[in-house]
Computed example of a mutant assay.
Amino acid sequence: MFPERRMRRLRSGKIKDLVRETSLSVNDLVYPIFANETIDSPQEVASMPGINNLPVEMVADEAKEAADLGIPAIMLFGIPEKKDEQGSSAWGDDDVVQQAVREIKNELGKDMLVITDVCLCEYTSHGHCGMVNFDTEEIMNDPTLPLLGKTAVSHVKAGADMVAPSGMMDGMISAIRSALDNNNYHNTPIMSYAVKYSSAFYGPFRDAAGSGCCFGDRSTHQMDPANSDEALMEAALDIEEGADIIMVKPALPYLDIIYRLKTEFEMPTAAYNVSGEYSMLKAAAQNGWLDEKQVMYESLISIKRAGADMIITYFAKEMAQMLK
Rank of each mutant, 00 (worst) to 15 (best):
A235M: 02
A235P: 07
L237N: 15
L237W: 11
D238L: 10
D238H: 10
D238K: 02
D238F: 00
I239H: 04
I239L: 01
E241W: 06
E241I: 06
E241Q: 13
G242V: 01
A243L: 07
I245M: 06
I245A: 01
I246F: 03
I246C: 06
M247K: 04
V248I: 00
K249Q: 07
K249C: 05
K249T: 04
A251M: 08
A251T: 13
L252H: 05
L252T: 12
P253H: 01
Y254A: 13
Y254I: 09
L255Y: 13
D256C: 11
D256M: 06
I257K: 13
I257T: 14
I257W: 02
I258G: 05
I258D: 00
I258T: 09
Y259N: 13
Y259H: 12
R260H: 12
R260G: 11
R260C: 03
L261K: 03
L261C: 03
L261P: 01
K262H: 14
K262A: 05
T263A: 15
E264H: 15
E264W: 02
E264K: 04
F265I: 02
F265M: 00
E266F: 14
E266L: 14
M267H: 08
M267V: 12
P268D: 05
A270G: 11
A270F: 11
A270N: 10
A270K: 10
A271M: 03
A271C: 04
Y272R: 03
N273C: 04
N273Q: 08
N273R: 02
V274P: 01
S275V: 02
S275E: 06
S275I: 01
G276Q: 12
G276A: 04
E277H: 01
E277V: 05
Y278A: 02
Y278W: 03
Y278R: 07
M280C: 09
L281M: 15
L281W: 14
K282H: 08
K282Q: 12
K282G: 08
K282P: 04
K282L: 11
A283M: 06
A283H: 13
A283Q: 07
A284S: 06
Q286L: 14
N287P: 01
N287I: 13
G288L: 00
W289P: 00
W289K: 14
L290R: 14
D291K: 11
E292T: 05
K293Y: 15
K293N: 14
V295K: 06
V295N: 13
V295E: 10
V295T: 12
M296H: 14
M296Q: 09
M296V: 09
E298F: 10
S299W: 12
L300P: 09
L300I: 09
I301E: 09
I301A: 06
S302D: 02
K304M: 08
K304I: 13
K304Y: 11
M310H: 15
M310K: 15
I311M: 12
I311S: 09
I311C: 07
I312H: 04
I312L: 09
I312F: 05
I312D: 08
Y314F: 03
F315T: 11
F315I: 07
F315P: 11
A316R: 03
A316F: 10
K317R: 09
K317D: 08
E318F: 11
E318Q: 02
E318R: 03
M319T: 13
